[in-house]
Amino acid sequence: MRKYQFYKELVGDIKLGRPNLEVSIDLEMYRVMQFTLRDILEQKVGSEEADKIFYDAGKLAGNYFYEMYINPVSSVEEFVGKTQKALRDKKIGILRVEEADLENGKVILTVDEDLDCSGLPELDYETCIYDEGFIAALFGNFSGQEWKAKEIDCWCTGARTCRFLVTKI
């Protein structure tokens, strides 16, 4: 018996529940929540397992996002266009496509002003694991096949934009 299984209604009616504070929160607090959660996860289960958890959680969020804001789409162009718009509207980031060869299962895209990492201090590792899962889920939902996403450039590693290589498995 699961206690915390995610379903879309769990997000609740935010407008109803927050008539004064409304739908947005300060990004600083979102990052605090994410990074403190990752800190504790790493302490409890190790770095590798913490990354896997973040990736899978990102996938779950990607599934939700696709169902709520992307679906239905009938072409690659519409998929990319709707995803760009939804990500911008939700202030998650500015998505740009460098290469989109869905037929051969290879996409390279960048996310500017990324929710998770833009402005972070320089680190020795790419940090957007949650985004990786999120992006993989978007492509998975669109194509009906399994995709994986890997961040190859990140703000944290000195790039000004996050670049992801998305490939069909």
Partner: peptide, 17 residues
């Protein structure tokens, strides 16, 4: 400097697309 150049490169690639 490299990051800015790479960002320009990414923008030009997106523009190509």
């Amino acid at each position: 400097i490299l990051a800015n150049l790479k960002a320009l490169q990414a923008n030009l690639l997106h523009l190509t697309w």
